[in-house]
């Protein structure tokens, strides 16, 4: 028995040694990497789910993580501007931009909010487009595909395994997004294309099948989201744009006068007046922003705050991407029910 135990220990140590070491910037990328990488990967994230990815300090311990990494997953845009510093400090040539161990998660995602004026007078603008791509489950599938490509490059023997897990991940994402019945009828890729174009709900409402409106086949987060579709909110920062696009939310204005610029008293005053005038009663913010500020604005206009994590692990129970989207949708739905009941 003792020998067997020692053998199992040795086997697990050897097996652990063969795992690909994956380091990601965001915790959401880490969760997706775990889902598609399964037992063949050992994944660590730098940014916590309740942390602002813009402002992470390039600590030496992150450089050590990257030094030992086979694969590094980052957005690849101007979100994690601290990433090149820790890549340089790690001295790991395999994870530099363009090398097999480097994965740019955004590749293939149609970026929204591309600036037309490149000037700091617009605040902390993102020159390639909005980099907060993880707020739409539609993008997760592209991110997962990109991660799998990175894993395959560094572990070709595991390619079939990764592809199989990717397929399962995509299927689960589709079912959770659109509901199993609609996915069975229309297929995930087609529904994804419609949702990306912003025409899914309109299409489903205009068509029938087997004597039943297509919209009645809709399930998952998109169905839940119908309760707040077309509604107007105020957001703290421009980091929900992909979520808004998917769920058809309108944003009246932001608490920040320009992206990355702390709210000024004058801007907050005018925002409150506008919220009253337009009867906007929901304020959505990532939970790393000031709850005091959000609550203060909400108190003044009788609005309800929705403070949610941006990433996996950012709140109790938000242990994976599916729980994260559950959290976003459930909280918004509940808040709009509250507002409508007033």
């Amino acid at each position: 028995m003792k020998k067997l135990f020692l053998f199992m220990m040795l086997f697990s140590v050897l097996h652990a040694g063969t795992k690909l070491s994956v380091v990601t910037t965001l915790s959401t990328y880490a969760d997706i990497a775990r889902k598609v990488g399964g037992d063949r990967v050992d994944v660590h994230a730098i940014v916590k789910g309740n942390q602002d990815a813009h402002f992470v300090r390039p600590k030496p311990s992150y450089a050590v993580m990257l030094q030992q990494a086979d694969v590094f997953v980052t957005t690849g845009l101007d979100l994690e501007l601290w990433a090149p510093t820790i890549i340089d400090r790690s001295g790991n040539p395999n994870i530099r931009s363009g090398q097999p161990g480097f994965v740019a998660a955004h590749d293939g995602i149609e970026l929204l909010d591309k600036p037309t004026v490149l000037s700091r007078s617009e605040g902390g603008l993102h020159i390639y487009g909005n980099p907060h791509i993880t707020t739409s489950p539609l993008n997760w599938k592209i991110i997962a595909e990109n991660i799998v490509i990175g894993l395959e490059k560094n572990d070709p023997e595991g390619a079939a395994y990764y592809r199989e897990r990717l397929k399962a991940f995509n299927e689960e994402t589709d079912q959770r997004l659109f509901g199993a019945e609609l996915v069975k009828l229309m297929g995930g890729p087609l529904l994804t294309r419609l949702a990306n174009k912003g025409t899914l709900i309109q299409f489903l409402k205009s068509k029938s099948y087997k004597g039943k409106k297509m919209i009645d086949y809709l399930g998952g987060w998109m169905k839940e989201g119908l309760s707040f579709r077309g509604k107007t909110i105020v957001a703290y920062h421009k980091n929900w744009i992909y979520f808004q696009h998917l769920f058809g939310l309108h944003v009246l204005d932001y608490v920040e006068p320009k992206p990355g610029i702390p709210p000024t008293p004058r801007h907050v005053k005018s925002l409150i007046e506008e919220m009253r005038k337009q009867n906007v009663r929901v304020l959505m913010a990532a939970n790393y922003f000031s709850a005091e500020k959000v609550n203060d604005i909400c108190d003044k206009v009788g609005a309800v705050p929705v403070m949610v994590p941006m990433g996996v692990g950012g709140a109790p129970g938000v242990d994976d991407v599916f729980a994260l989207a559950d959290y976003w949708v459930a909280h918004l739905k509940k808040v709009f029910e509250q507002v409508n009941a007033k």
Partner: peptide, 11 residues
């Protein structure tokens, strides 16, 4: 339906 959806999604 799928054909129409494809057309609706085509850019």
């Amino acid at each position: 339906l799928r054909r129409e959806a494809g057309e609706a999604a085509n850019i």
